Computed example of a mutant assay.
Amino acid sequence: MSQHPGWGPQDGQPGQPGQWQPPQGYGPYHQGQQQPYGYGQPYAPGPYAPIPPLPPKPGVIRLNPQGLNFGDIFGGAFATLGRCWRTYLAVAAAVFGLTVVVGVIFFLIGWLTAADVFTRVFEKNGPAVSGSDVATVVAILGTGVLILFLMSLYFAGAQSALAYTTLEEAVVGRRLTTREAWRRARSRAWAVVGVMVLTGLLALLPMLAAAAILVPVWMALHDGGGGAIAGGVALTILVALGLAAALAWLWVRLALAPAAAVLEHASPAAALRRSTTLVRGSWWRTFGFLLLAGIIAQTASYILATPLQIVGTLVAEASGDSAAVWIPLTLLLLIASFVGSAIVTFFPPLIAGLLYVDRRIRHENLHPELLTAAGENPGPTVSPT
């Protein structure tokens, strides 16, 4: 359960399946009746039965007790981007800038402390290079790459958590300041990183299985004839297709784990189990939404980043001075990379977060909790017959 007003499971337990009955008292009076007809009441006979009002929409989605449809999920994701784009860009810019600055500072320090070693190693016609020189360069570069990788991993988890944190409030019509959103996101960043690491380790299992099949086969076929090679190629294709299917199955089954880690404050292992439970019975639907979200994000990133890259290239070609060529081109390429990465970073998690909401509405009666969190009257809850 979150430590802030939210709509996670109470006391760590999901809601019981049920169907929401909207509050009474809405809709027109029927002739001869003393009480107004509303949600959940039977319509009186006659040719002019009242049209039931739409479910309430306090935030970015309409809170339908039957779950979310295609328009709700993608419309809600775009609406959340519209509400929170300043927060996303501010955090993405800070993360991007900090990563670049730390990388530049580290490699400058490495260069200044071992400039002669770098010169000897990378000079084409220089003196013979010793093993200690190569080891020094590898140690410096390897340490820098490791630091940047760990920073990038943490920031990826934090930005993913930021998407879910802002979505949690946007669903019920609330907004967070950038500072509060980042505070909540970074508190769950390591949990999301843990989910990413465990998912990666699980993905290694089918890869190792594929390698265990193919490596001995190709070693045995090393001196084989054309027919043996053709059989090896056919087997490789079959194993590659099986590996792709296994990785896709695993990706979808675990796709809602980051949302569970953030919105339910679950541990990484518990979040993976939670995702498996939520996706069960809806694998193909989840796969379709996630695949389309990735395509949209990549396409939008390409459309927005390409003009900046073209402008940078034109500016560089129009200038004869080397500094005037390098500086604007580098800046525009950095901006293009930043814009593209921001879209790819935040849009797919918003889709996954709304899929999480949809699964809980359909199977765990989350709908009344959402209405309560939004300040709406949830009405009575009855078990389905």
Rank of each mutant, 00 (worst) to 15 (best):
S319N: 14
H265S: 07
P22Y: 03
L148H: 06
P268S: 13
L308P: 00
P50Y: 04
L108E: 09
A135N: 12
L162K: 01
F96E: 07
T372V: 06
Q41M: 12
G288F: 10
V262M: 03
L354I: 04
Q31L: 10
G32L: 13
A257Y: 04
A49C: 09
W20C: 04
V325L: 09
L148R: 01
T381Y: 11
A270W: 12
L204Y: 11
H4P: 03
W249G: 08
I295P: 00
V325T: 11
G379S: 08
N377Y: 05
L89P: 10
A336H: 01
P378F: 08
P378G: 10
A257I: 07
P380S: 08
G40N: 15
I237D: 11
L205S: 15
T178Y: 07
T306C: 08
S132W: 07
L204A: 14
G126M: 09
Y154W: 05
L150S: 04
S130K: 09
H30R: 08
A352L: 12
G232W: 04
P127Q: 05
G144M: 00
G12N: 05
E169L: 13
T286A: 10
P384W: 11
R175Y: 07
H222D: 02
L235M: 14
V239Q: 03
F149I: 02
L221G: 00
L254S: 02
N365V: 04
A210G: 14
T119Y: 15
G18P: 13
G288C: 14
A210H: 12
A336Q: 04
D133P: 01
R175V: 14
V197T: 14
V315T: 14
T166G: 00
S2P: 03
L314T: 06
L89I: 07
P206A: 13
L198Y: 06
G97E: 01
R273G: 13
A297T: 07
S319Y: 13
A297F: 05
F289Q: 03
V172C: 03
F155W: 15
V239T: 10
Q34H: 15
E317Y: 13
Q159K: 15
T385P: 10
G18W: 11
V137C: 01
S301E: 06
A246L: 05
F106Y: 14
